[in-house]
């Protein structure tokens, strides 16, 4: 056919000279930026993980591994090659004293000698190194910890069949199917302070401690825990979470803000698993979190359910590091324990 159309030859020869693809350069300056993941919890030392980041080209290479290999190898790779253990890291408290943060080889992070206090404005500065430019990040520890009060609960034992019929539970898979678990419905009050926007993360952790069988660590006492819970309260509704993650339900997020309850005393009802062993307890924490941590956790929750759809808008992991990546979050919390 091409013989009949010499135009093809002309066009082809000209376009051969004009290669039609090119490599798009990535901004090389981003390779010199630190990644900082730091958390300030009221009453505890500030801790920070500091690492390098990579351009997309290195990351994509991991995609050729299967899930297990990817998880194992990427973590190893991260620890061996990206984690920085010799950075000069300073923590400045309320614009005044600066504390040097030391690297803890066990925790693989930098720890301050200073204990964070409610209302503190904390700033982390990472000094430049060869190949990395300076980065800094600021957070403020929430001034209050929402107190959980008027706690009430009911326990429904051994109702697996009923749960499978979804009589009570939106997502019955939240509960293991070994016949040993049950459902705990917990209600409690918390008071949201009026005024500026407050951000929360609710943690409901069901725990137990049992004398393990030979299958588990040779008969030692073993503690187990699960943080998954569910509530149909609209406070937890997040329209972006169109799919569940693990046993977290779709449209459910345990990270929320107070825009619909500003300044009110609010009663929440949640459903959690409750194990039957004798030494069981449930921890309830209504954590006040910083704005940056709120957006970070929200983006992580969205990211982990995202699919590899070329039409989708990519997901940005929110952060608050200047000239770098990551987040410096803060939280203030009180723990309420239901022993049973």
């Amino acid at each position: 056919m091409t013989k009949k159309f010499p135009l093809y030859y002309i066009l082809g020869a000209l376009m051969l000279l004009a290669s039609c693809e090119t490599t798009v350069p990535l901004d090389s300056s981003i390779d010199t930026e630190y990644t900082i993941y730091a958390l300030a919890v009221a009453g505890q030392p500030v801790k920070a993980h500091i690492s390098h980041k990579l351009s997309i080209s290195m990351g994509v290479a991991f995609d050729h591994l299967d899930l297990d290999a990817f998880t194992k190898q990427s973590t190893d790779f991260y620890k061996k090659s990206l984690l920085i253990d010799d950075a000069s890291v300073g923590l400045t408290v309320n614009g005044g004293l600066t504390y040097e943060m030391a690297y803890d080889t066990t925790l693989c992070c930098y720890t301050s000698s200073y204990t964070a206090q409610p209302g503190d404005e904390l700033r982390i500065d990472v000094a430049p190194q060869v190949g990395c430019k300076a980065a800094s990040t600021v957070t403020q520890v929430p001034t209050f910890a929402a107190e959980v009060s008027k706690v009430a609960y009911d326990v429904y034992f051994d109702q697996i069949a009923t749960m499978a019929d979804r009589k009570w539970e939106h997502n019955w898979r939240d509960y293991d199917a070994y016949g040993a678990d049950s459902l705990m419905i917990i209600s409690f009050d918390f008071q949201d302070p009026p005024g500026e926007r407050n951000y929360y993360r609710l943690k409901v952790r069901s725990c137990n401690n049992f004398k393990a069988t030979s299958h588990y660590q040779g008969g030692d006492s073993v503690s187990t825990a699960c943080d998954v819970f569910f509530s149909s309260d609209p406070l937890f509704y997040d329209s972006r979470l169109v799919k569940g993650y693990g046993s977290w339900s779709p449209y459910f997020s345990n990270v929320f803000d107070d825009h619909s309850i500003d300044g009110k005393s609010y009663r929440l009802t949640v459903r959690s698993r409750k194990r039957l062993e004798p030494d069981t307890f449930t921890i309830i924490e209504m954590q006040s979190i910083s704005e940056s941590l709120f957006y970070y956790l929200k983006s992580i929750q969205l990211y982990r359910i995202s699919t590899d759809d070329v039409y989708s808008n990519p997901i940005a992991i929110d952060g608050n590091v200047d000239d770098g990546w990551g987040v410096f979050g803060a939280l203030n919390t009180r723990t309420y324990i239901i022993h049973r």
């Binding site: 990644t35 690492s51 808008n313």
Partner: peptide, 20 residues
């Protein structure tokens, strides 16, 4: 436009959860 051009390692707050 938007393209995830950076590859990094982040963290989540610890949550014990059933992963399927």
């Amino acid at each position: 436009g938007t393209i995830p051009y950076a590859y990094l390692f982040g963290y989540n707050l610890r949550e014990y959860e059933y992963l399927g």
